[in-house]
Design a binder for these strands. Sequence first.
DNA 1: GCGACAG
DNA 2: ATCTTGTCGC
Length: 228
Amino acid sequence: MPAPLHEWNLAPKEAMALQSQLAKRLEMTDRLAPVTHIAGVDIGFEEGGEITRAAVVVLKWDPATAPDLSVVEQVVHREPTRMAYIPGLLSFREIPAALGAFEKLSVMPELVMVDGQGVAHPRRLGVAAHLGLWLDLPTIGIAKSRLYGQHAEVGEQRGDWVPLDAGQETIGAVLRSRAKVKPVYVSPGHRITLETSMAWVMRCLGRTKLPEPTRLADRLASRRDQRK
DNA sequence: GCGACAG
DNA sequence: ATCTTGTCGC
């Protein structure tokens, strides 16, 4: 029987078609409100993958102390895992839980950093871009490895970077966020340009490879720092 | 047909 | 992502 499919339970083929449609709605120009709070988002799993755990950390933006930013709020939301991981369809697996976490937030940020790709995706809708549309907030994707696009080797000094290209368009940047450490893949999600994305990522970079927002969200979602 | 493949 | 201890290096 024909299954009434809602956005989070689509078959791979339909999900891919939806991504192409949603990507057309992405705003690739800067439309940010003055930034006072930045959020980091990451997803983890428990019970052998049966439970999806979304973590969101909100930091107060203070140019005077950056990259040392104070944590204003942090929430963890758990719910049954919906679908298996399929390269290219990550957002359908992680966004439902992420939205649940955002609903519990009392302080809404003006900028969100997500663990994963923004538009550096085969159909230009990585998890950061997809989440940006749902939240209607500027989002930046910061991935620890490459999904799509080609690039030259990156210099080995902190701050060195090279463009991540797909054909004739630049979809992101490969940034050496920490000397001698594997670079991160930065790409805009929604309502922000690559240039502005890079500026914010670099401003939030402490001594580690990941910018503070996603580094803290990563820790929260991973369970080692936060048990139970 | 043979790889590549975010988390 | 997750399963897992120690160990090399700044």
